[in-house]
Structure formats: C-alpha cells, structure tokens
Computed example of a mutant assay.
Amino acid sequence: MTGEGRQFVEFATRETLAKTGIGFLVAVVFLYLVAVGLGVEKVSQALAGAEWEWVALGCLSTAFCLAAWGKAWQIVLQVVGIDVPYRRLVVTYFAATFANYVTPLGQAGGEPFIAYVLSRDTDASYEDSLASVVTADLLNLLPFFSFAAVGLGVLLTRPSLPAATRPLAFGLFGMAVGIPALTGAGWFWRERVRSGILRLVAPVAKRTSRVSVAGAAERLDDLYAAFGRVAQDPRALVKAVGFAYVGWVFFALPLYCAGQALGVDISPLTVLFVVPASTLAGMVPTPGGLGGVEAALVALLVAVAIESAALALAIALVYRVVSYWFALGVGGTAALTVVKRA
C-alpha cells in the first residue's frame, strides 16, 4: 500500500474508531430502551410480518439514490476540470458515504472528510475536492427544501399542525432561509471571511509549525478559485440539480417501502415531509444520527400518519435498515476497494 493509502487508513481509524464505537453503543442502547417503552413484543410482531419484497425494493432505491448523487458529483467535478470515470467515482462516493455515516456528526459536517477521501482516490486537489463536495451538498439542499415545503404545505392545510411536528417544521423553515443566506453572504463578503479566518489562524500558527498563515491563505485562495470555476458553468449545475432531485426521490422512497412492507400505506406527500424533517435529527452526535432519526420518525409518523407508536417504531427500523444499514454495508465494501487501490 502506498503512503497515501496508509495515511487514509490511519486517519480513518485513529480519529474515528473510538468515537464511532461509543456512538453505536449509545444509539443501540437508546433504541432498545425506546422499544422497551413502546413494547418489544408489539414491535417484534409488526416486524415479523414484514414483506421482504418491499424491503428489497427499499434497498434498491437507496442504491439508486447514491448512484444519482454520485453522478451529480461527477458533473460538478467536470466543471472544475477533473474528469473521473463514473465507474470509479461512484465507488469513491459510496466509500465517502460510508465514512460520513460512521462518523459521529458526519451528517452535520462531513464534507472535509469526504473531500479527503476524494483527493486521495483521484487526481483532484483537496481544495477542488472540497469545493465540489460543498457545491454538490448545496445542490442537494434544493430538492431537500422543495420536497419538505410540499409536504409541509399539505400539513398546513389541515386544521392544525400537530405539536410534535412544529419544532422540526420551524427547523426546516430556518434552514431553508438561513443556509442560502449564509452561503450567499459568505461568498459576497468572502474577503472579510478570508481575513477573519486568517486572524483565527494567526495565534495557532505561533504555537505550532504545522500551521502557517501563508499556507492557510493559499488554501483559502485555492478554495475560492475552485468555487469560482464551479459557478462559471450554470448549465452543468442545472444538470447536476436534476440528478440531485432524482436522488432525493429515491432517498425518500424507502420510507414508503418500509410502510408497505408492514402493511401501512403512507401517503407520498407525508413521506415528502417526514423524510427531510427526520433528517434534521441526523445532527445528533451518533454515527449517521442513529437513534435520533428513529426517534424523530416515530414522533412524526404518530403525529401525522399512524396511531400506534410501536408500529411506527417498526416502520422506522425497517426504513433505517434499507436506507442506513444497507448503505453502510455497500459503502463499507466500497471503502475497502478504495483503500486497496490507493
């Protein structure tokens, strides 16, 4: 294995192994306690009647979702002058997804780690990799908010919005307004942002030789240049947005499949709200939001679609099997491939 391959392995194990193990343990204990509180027997009975054809369809939908997002990523990379064969890049994307899903808080800020994986597995620089990853994530936010707005709009037509959904509804609204605003402000006042970051780096640089103000300035300039190149091809970005929307459809579909697997017909419009809303719970400090997403799904499903909390938990568990654990399995295999070819 080359030095870069060893560096990737060391980075992935030394930085995250202990936190990941603790995170999984805490999440599993939490889920067990939730199941005990709702009735383990009731949850088990619901799961025992699962139709595995729908479970398989949900897994297939997750694979299509990641493949579509990988294609959007490839388009963004091509804009910055990096042409990676899709067959190679989609494996890298699955591996990066695995790294993101096993890293605590990865869902809330795994872009630097994913950019690290991409830069080590392709000819892309870290700055171009980070710019492409952040751009692709921002493009994915468009369908995220679009689908959430449609679902939320349907709920708002009801006499009253269920109390359990109000915090997540306000959270979605805040993100819909805040993230684009912060992104635009960060770009418009990029010189001020650059100066502020360098002021923060200066005292750190005085204490260690590993960080320098000049080096940080060069990296920031390269990153802004990469963002500038991405913005120069709006037609390619529109094409990437199209794949982002396709990916989000397949990202939401597994919840519908999970309901069908257990004999529950969840309205597609409900799915469009519940999936984005539950994704906010992915920001809890466990791998992939494990525990938090399931709890949010139970609360949302009980509030808008299902009376039985035990059945809602069973659906949440099936959904996470096809959307999270399946992605971990496929992504883990891809990660081994990436490490081997590094």
Rank of each mutant, 00 (worst) to 15 (best):
Gln107Phe: 03
Ile22Gly: 01
Ser160Asp: 14
Gly331Trp: 12
Gly23Ala: 11
Gly288Met: 10
Phe250Asn: 03
Val230Met: 01
Val249Ile: 15
Glu294Asn: 10
Pro143His: 09
Tyr126Gln: 02
Val302Thr: 08
Ala12His: 14
Val193Phe: 11
Gln232Trp: 00
Val204Gly: 00
Val338Lys: 05
Ala296Lys: 15
Leu152Trp: 09
Ala67Gly: 05
Asp137Asn: 14
Trp69Thr: 02
Thr122Met: 04
Ser132Phe: 05
Glu51Tyr: 09
Ser61Cys: 11
Gly215Pro: 01
Leu262Asp: 06
Glu41Pro: 03
Ala214Asn: 00
Ser278His: 12
Asp123Ala: 14
Ala72Phe: 01
Tyr32Arg: 13
Tyr256Gly: 07
Ala231His: 00
Arg199Lys: 13
Leu77Pro: 08
Pro254Val: 04
Thr103Gln: 11
Leu200Gln: 00
Ala181Asn: 04
Arg14Phe: 05
Val79Ala: 06
Pro104Phe: 10
Gly58Ala: 03
Leu161Phe: 08
Ala56Trp: 04
Val154Gln: 13
Ala169Lys: 10
Thr135Phe: 04
Asp233Glu: 02
Asn100Trp: 08
Ile22Leu: 12
Ala225His: 00
Leu60Thr: 08
Ser132Pro: 02
Gly196Glu: 03
Val90Lys: 06
Val298Ala: 14
Lys42Asp: 15
Val275Ala: 05
Met175Ile: 05
Trp69Arg: 10
Ala124Cys: 03
Leu182Pro: 10
Thr333Arg: 13
Leu77Thr: 07
Arg120Asp: 01
Val117Gln: 09
Ala342Asp: 05
Gly178Lys: 01
Ala108Tyr: 08
